[in-house]
């Protein structure tokens, strides 16, 4: 029997916060992607924790789908990064502000 679910939730919240801060402060698009993965993992951890606490397999099923969607997202996201790099030779998010109003 594992320890109380609250600890897991606190850990997930902390992981999410770190990921969010990273997303906001880092400028490298690749690192920003990794921070998104951190946030997704925090959410996954929460789902699994609730799944255990409530004795419901549904939480794990959702994590399964999140994994698939995250994989697709990374594939497309990195494809876009490569495409942009071909044209602008940069992976810095701040270089891409041609849509300034």
């Amino acid at each position: 029997m594992s320890i109380n679910g609250d600890w897991y939730l606190i850990l997930a919240a902390a992981l999410f916060a770190i990921g969010a801060v990273g997303l906001l402060v880092r400028r490298n698009v690749l690192v920003m992607f990794m921070c998104i993965e951190l946030m997704l993992n925090a959410a996954n951890l929460t789902f699994v924790t609730f799944s255990r606490m409530l004795g419901d397999i549904g939480g794990q099923a959702v994590v399964f789908f999140v994994l698939v969607v995250a994989a697709a997202e990374v594939v497309i996201g990195l494809g876009i990064v490569v495409t942009i790099f071909r044209r602008r030779v940069s992976t810095t998010a701040d270089d891409l502000h041609v849509l300034k109003g």
Binding site: S51, R52, L54, G55, D56, I57, G58, Q60, A61
Partner: peptide, 9 residues
């Protein structure tokens, strides 16, 4: 609440 998608055990 009852497990919606089936129990884990």
């Amino acid at each position: 609440a009852h497990a919606v998608a089936g129990s884990t055990t």
